[in-house]
Nucleic acid binder design. Structure first.
Lengths: 343, 343
DNA sequence: TAATTTTCCGTGAACGGGCACGAAATTTCG
DNA sequence: CGAAATTTCGTGCCCGTTCACGGAAAATTA
């Protein structure tokens, strides 16, 4: 029948040895033009494709993919990314590819010792990151962005959410079916950040959000309410003060993954007839969905970002395959209490 | 460093040969209790896991997974299932596993000739299917259901949507934020079926839908409107007549994948201020979303069902792995015009 | 033309595991 | 106890690649 074509079949047909075929397949040189042509012809005619498994088995080199992420505690957004790294690592572990999870901070230093074959990371601290990727480029180490990306020219691939559009979607869902006079006030809960060091990862999302409102509800007033994650009491007080002062606000959103920070307040003061939308399916956020305290979570398969990233890099290292697309925008899922179960 | 543990390492530690270890690993017998114990201990201690790739390479047997589906034309629901079969087949093709796509009708006959190692199928024609799976059971050929399932005891796994819940979700989305008096009438578009042969695959979904309404909007009146897919003109006329007679109907759903059948009518008579919900992301349905003629599509990664099915079966055949869950309910996605792009 | 360099290519030992074969060890039985 | 039957186990080849090694052929130089 249609037995698999092997390298030997190709060699025979081209009238050379398997070593030569191998050299041609991997562009390793040391082959005369004539032989190369014959081999390529034979490959073409027989539709030869190397057996990945035999190849992996025989290959000696071990690849290490460094996966960078910030330090995080349980239940945080980064835990999902971390899971994806693990899943991807598992998937490629049999391929002589090892993943190494590293805290972002230590990465640069560590790179000097153990030179990895590839790097996956979210570009978190912009200036540090630029220096770092510069170094990677110099060393010819491919790197993949997850979560968000910088606009340098050298990243190998990017996997993440379309941030601007997610803000747009958020605004659309928030205001759907509402008449203009019902969308007069919106509260955007925001996180107090140390602006010197941390860039705000939600800027693009926020502009998508604002743009949608500006077009569809130009008269809508947007209140920014700043809270501090480490200070639950202060958060509660801030919210309390805000909603006392603006009792008409029925529409609430949180652009980052931490809508759960206002869960406590919502439990005590549910927003009747309003709508609350957050992002990302952290367990604590899902809980709020289930309790009906928030209406919608806009999420994505966060783990997939990091998993795909690892796999795409392994593909590149092992068989030189490029990803189908360089920029991979993940689908945005809409989660309600009725469809969160099998997510 | 942490070199991979091989069968030789285990053999050495247990003081036997690799042949014996192999026999233990695959429960092939011909091993004394004493040796087996030693080997198992060594495996345990070294955390040995056989290298899948080496294993596949060495194994000679070829597996064939038969994938059954009904005949379909382009753009239909089954095309997605078909894609998944192809994707899954591709993924396992390097593992000596071949997939063969077969029309449901011919399957029984063909089975008599080429005995496949496994079967994946949607249980479409109930009585035929029961006879068929009986035969499979007798021959000890594992089979996996996709799309929907029969409640026999022998299927190896099932991948599909939670039908009842999808109806529930549909009703929830349809009526969200509406006051009781706004949900007085609902139109359910249905397909005329030859009841003798074809079972209605949406019964469970419809009961989920009805149950939600019964609880939350007990006074709501549900109109069933039957159309015939092969007769666009008749469909148009039927719809026209219906909506003329019931101008108050603003909420419309279609439980099957064919909401696009009413696209033509909707284009001419958009339902202002109403809501139209359909199922499944067929291209034609997506187009309606984009044009704003329908509001929501409840979908799933249909291709994944069939892909997972193929892969799970390959796993079972190659390394005897059971799926984590026997029944795998896929997540239901909510698609709107704002998040359909990267799906 | 012989010697030397360079280019090209074939050979064969891995890689980790499956499995057939036959030998060794053990049990059974006369 | 010895022979035969049975159980248990080790050996070695094979799967399709990769790649180091070294030899043959071609090109260059003297």
């Amino acid at each position: 029948m249609n037995r698999k074509i092997t390298i030997i079949d190709v060699a025979k047909r081209a009238g050379v040895s398997k070593g030569t075929v191998d050299r041609v397949v991997h562009n390793r040189g040391e082959v005369s033009k004539k032989s190369e042509a014959k081999v390529r012809k034979a490959i073409e005619e027989l539709h030869y494709e190397p057996n990945l498994y035999a190849s992996v088995l025989a290959k000696k080199t071990d690849y290490v993919i460094a996966c960078l992420l910030p330090e995080f505690s349980e239940g945080e957004y980064w835990e999902k990314i971390w899971r994806g790294f693990e899943a991807g690592g598992e998937q490629v572990s049999a391929l002589n590819v090892t993943t190494r999870l590293t805290s972002f901070r230590k990465a640069c230093a560590e790179l000097l010792e153990a030179a990895p074959s590839g790097v996956v990371m979210p570009p978190l601290f912009k200036s540090d990151c630029i220096a770092f990727t510069e170094e990677l480029r110099r060393r010819d180490i491919p790197y993949v962005y997850v979560d968000s990306k910088l606009e340098d020219d050298n990243y190998f691939a990017y996997y993440g959410m379309p941030m601007y559009k997610s803000g747009f979607l958020c605004a659309a869902l928030l205001t759907e079916r509402l008449r203009e006079e019902e969308v007069d006030q919106v509260a955007v809960i925001r996180i107090n950040r140390d602006k010197a060091r941390q860039s705000d990862p939600t800027v693009n999302r926020r502009s998508g959000f604002m743009d949608y409102l500006a077009v569809n509800f130009p008269k809508c007033e947007v209140h920014n309410v700043f809270i501090t994650p480490s200070d639950p009491k202060g958060t509660y007080a801030t919210l309390d003060a805000f909603f006392k002062e603006h009792p008409g606000v029925k529409l609430v959103v949180m652009m980052s993954s931490r809508i759960h920070l206002i869960g406590r307040y919502l439990a005590d003061h549910p927003i009747a007839g309003g709508r609350v939308i957050g992002f990302d399916n952290l367990e604590k956020n899902i809980a709020l969905l289930q309790e009906g305290l928030i209406n919608i979570l806009i999420t994505q398969r966060t783990e997939n970002q990091s998993r795909y990233a690892v796999i795409s890099l392994a593909d590149r290292l092992l068989i030189g395959r490029m990803p189908a697309r360089r920029d991979n925008y993940m689908h945005m899922d809409i989660l309600t209490r009725y469809n969160q179960e099998n997510y």
